[in-house]
Design a binder for these strands. Structure first.
Lengths: 216, 216
DNA sequence: ACTTCTTATTAGGTATACCTAATTCTTTGT
DNA sequence: ACAAAGAATTAGGTATACCTAATAAGAAGT
């Protein structure tokens, strides 16, 4: 009767992520995100609901308090793993996601503490996302996508909502990483590109790309 | 048709370890070591044999070249994990085994390399056991158990064949750790204790305990 | 309102890795 | 040599987590 926690963690983490965009998460979105068939997800969601980790209504799936707590613990371990990989093992930010997806299920609460301590209690992952603290408290900054800035507006990159390595490499090559200041020089009309100024250089950035960069 | 590698790795690692004591490993020993029922092990061993990872004869199970290579890769990841835990995350040597048992299945070849590099290519785990290199080459020192030394013999601790935390704590408290020099002052007859001298202090050590400490 | 399209679920099936109980095969003691 | 003990396997069964194909339920278009 006991849980295959890795699998459960995977589901909770996905639901957690998808909830940020779409509140009650549809099972089809979840299936797509987990790369599983819809029936498999349907079935598993039922089990999660039985364990009181999610509520499953007509509109979709959402985490219960308990599910949310558990999801945040996984997110914490994922992001701490990413930091361990970059800060200590010399990984680049585009190489850490997949590795962290495996590590997050192999890290004990004790190791979680030790990583946090050894890294000086980092507040964010290498992509700028906040690391929930031990009690699940998560300080989320108010951000907006870079794509929504007006011409001549200046802002600081908070995080990058992206995990594709190619894309991350591209962004890093332009210096578009957290804590960097960006000036929007010009916004081309009709959904055209943004001309941005980053640490002295000027680049044209597609809207799609710019929408993934969150700034404050 | 593809492998549940973590489980396979677990078996190979156990067989690898047990082979050091008893060459063809009996399925019952294996079952005991893995804390599984004999039939479960019997069945799994059949699968491993199908995959050409072990040879299963009347006398027992032994690793094929391929199985041995795979086992050594797991051992490498296990011991590198242990070193990561002690050297970077501040764990004590008695706290690392269980944690490493989980990590060893979540570490990619790339991460393996990075850990080794970041730690300066350590040659042994915190308990003194050699870390196989990338190609499975493993330099095994010629050792004998401390329990076999004669009175007045002096030797250097190479490794400790033990993973029980309590025991490791005890040994560490006496300073009985790898690379430390020990002098046997006296050997009590009839399987009695050894009186040993370690960094200025004198202790009485049971035979059982002493047999787990390998020296050169 | 009704058909169409999408979304979700049920039905039925597979593979993995475990279990207990029963059986067979292998030693070993007398 | 043979019975008792011990080791290993077969038989039969469970739970988990996945799948495809078929069906049902809900939303949207004319």
């Amino acid at each position: 009767m006991e849980a295959d926690t890795p699998r459960i963690e995977e589901y909770l983490e996905s639901i957690y992520k998808l909830q940020q965009e779409q509140h009650p998460v549809s099972t089809s979105r979840l299936a797509e995100h987990l790369k599983l068939s819809a029936p498999s997800v349907s079935e598993m969601v039922k089990k999660l609901a039985n364990k009181r980790l999610v509520n499953h209504t007509e509109k979709g799936v959402c985490l219960t308090d308990e599910g949310n707590t558990m999801a945040k613990r996984v997110v914490r371990r994922h992001r701490l793993s990413e930091r361990l990989l970059t800060d200590i093992l010399g990984y680049k930010w585009d190489e850490v996601h997949d590795e962290a997806c495996r590590l997050e299920h192999a890290i004990s609460p004790q190791m979680e503490d030790r990583i946090a301590l050894s890294l000086g209690n980092p507040k964010t992952c290498p992509h700028g996302h906040p690391i929930p603290d031990k009690d699940g408290v998560l300080l989320k900054e108010k951000v907006r996508p870079l794509s929504e800035l007006k011409s001549k507006e200046k802002a600081i990159i908070v995080n990058v909502f992206e995990e594709d390595p190619k894309m991350l490499q591209y962004l890093a090559s332009l210096g578009l990483i957290p804590d960097v200041s960006v000036l929007v020089e010009e916004v081309a009309p009709f959904g055209g590109p943004l001309i941005v100024c980053v640490s002295g250089s000027r680049y044209a950035l597609g809207r799609e790309v710019a929408s993934k960069i969150k700034v404050k």
